[in-house]
């Protein structure tokens, strides 16, 4: 389910987007819009990886035997 979250997020954003109409279109409009979505997911991924790494480090500290570090 966790792997599906980015796709669900992307779907919700795609159906909710609307911006004012202009006569002329910049060629990178799709890129600029999609960066907001991809960036959010990427940032969440970075945050998640950091959180996971911190959690792992904390667990290692908790469960490591007090004597193991002295050997």
């Amino acid at each position: 389910m966790r792997r599906l979250l980015p796709y669900v997020f992307l779907g919700l954003v795609l159906v909710s987007l609307d911006t004012p109409a202009f006569a002329y279109l910049d060629g990178a409009t799709g890129s600029m819009m999609v960066q907001a979505i991809i960036g959010s997911v990427a940032a969440a991924g970075v945050f998640g990886r950091h959180a996971l790494a911190k959690t792992k480090a904390a667990l290692v500290r908790i469960f490591r035997s007090p004597t193991s570090g002295d050997r």
């Binding site: 987007l17 609307d18 911006t19 004012p20 109409a21 202009f22 006569a23 002329y24 279109l25 910049d26 990178a28 409009t29 799709g30 600029m32 819009m33």
Partner: peptide
């Protein structure tokens, strides 16, 4: 494509 169709820009 959606932007082209609707004439919207970012």
């Amino acid at each position: 494509r959606r932007s082209l169709r609707k004439g919207t820009i970012a």
